[in-house]
Nucleic acid binder design. Structure first.
Lengths: 219, 219
DNA sequence: GTTGACGAAATTGTTAGCAATATCGTCAGC
DNA sequence: GCTGACGATATTGCTAACAATTTCGTCAAC
């Protein structure tokens, strides 16, 4: 079940392996602190040890894997303190993106965001966590896309990968949607009104609240 | 001259190679768009091709090297537009660090920063570019250190490496120190006065001005 | 019972060689 | 003279095997 078959029988390339392992870590199939023995991974994924090695090197630069000289690799465990730091950095970067998005957004994109706002309101109203969480991700992704900031986007994505465990934990919290919905609506409103400062501030407040929730949950 | 000897005769490990190559790129010994042929690098640095390969993989994740499937690696060339994006991201992150630094700075550290301010004023007064540039780097590094934000620090450092070419260009600009000195002094003053908002805003304005200078120079 | 030395097993680090792919020069055909 | 096919060369992608290091179990000494 956890084993990944070799598909059509071809061996995996180094780059394919990086993607597979990254997803496995982000999806939680490989848990924090779990040892990543090169030979085992090579068997499991049907790749050569050399490629596994390269993949682990790259993931260690990305911050998902921790390597110690002569002692192998393991899935990096992100502490609560670190998750808070990451959230603060994300706050700064997503606020930047929100500002840029408010400057550049087109009418069609505005329409799309307002539609998303309606979807979120309805999802909360009928208590559909699944749908709300999906909208949440789409909202953040859309704002980053509209901002057209490639550097910020890449950085945010990397950091998201590192802190995904805490995001997940948060999405399952009981009262959470009722707290975050008005924040999300405020962000959408400011961006659609072409209010850069308002959008940045609304985004900053939202992620500040996320940080508070992480702090409150893990204490 | 450009060739690096093997030192005491030992072959270089993969990790040593990463550091050597990173420095070579940042110091400009390997110029943008320059092809990085694995076999050549292996000869030049006295390492095996496998290790060169791993090093190039890691540097490509760091954004210093560009790799194309089956067509090798080259030093990544950062465009002006990208340098501006990078500077904006740095502005957001260093503003965050300045805010945190203002919250946490100790009296001893304050003293150190004020000493640095005096050094910078004197360097500008006697037209010592070399010394001013060194102080500039020390200032940014110190604020990041005081802020104790590891995630932000790592991100900033990575981005700095990518845009180093533009920073260098800027430091050589004639009137530049007279423009940036008051900004630097304002940052130091706000941080030492424990004024988080003021420090963040001063840092943001400073890097905004850096962005303007990059824009003006490359047009 | 605890401590420390020794050695086997497990695991990582490195290298050399083979296979696959792209690049470039050459030359025939138009 | 220009175009496109062909083959040689250069270069990357990958794998298997070897070397070095760490880890862990065993056992003797205290």
């Amino acid at each position: 079940m956890t084993t990944v078959d070799e598909g059509v029988g071809g061996a995996l390339s180094a780059q394919e392996l990086v993607d597979l392992l990254r997803n496995a870590i982000i999806r939680g199939e490989l848990v924090p602190k779990q040892r990543l023995v090169e030979a085992d991974l090579a068997d499991e994924y049907g790749a050569s040890r050399g490629n596994v090695r390269v993949a682990l090197s790259e993931l260690s630069v990305e911050g998902l894997v921790e390597r110690v000289q002569n002692r192998g690799a393991r899935v990096r465990a992100v502490s609560v303190e670190e998750a808070l730091e990451i959230t603060e950095v994300r706050a700064a970067l997503e606020a930047l993106c929100a500002r840029k998005a408010a400057e550049r957004i087109s009418d069609a994109e505005s329409e799309e965001l307002r539609g998303l706002a309606k979807e979120m309101e309805e999802a909360v109203e009928r208590g559909d966590r699944e749908s709300y969480s999906a909208c949440n991700q789409r909202l953040h992704a859309k704002i980053i896309a509209v901002s057209a900031q490639k550097t910020a986007a890449a950085t945010i994505q990397r950091l998201r990968g590192q802190a995904v465990r805490f995001q997940f934990q948060l999405a399952r919290q009981p009262g959470r949607p009722h707290v975050s919905l008005p924040q999300h609506l405020a962000i959408i409103d400011a961006v659609c009104r072409h209010d850069p400062n308002g959008a940045a501030e609304a985004m900053r407040l939202h992620l500040e609240s996320v940080a508070d929730a992480i702090r409150a949950t893990n204490s």
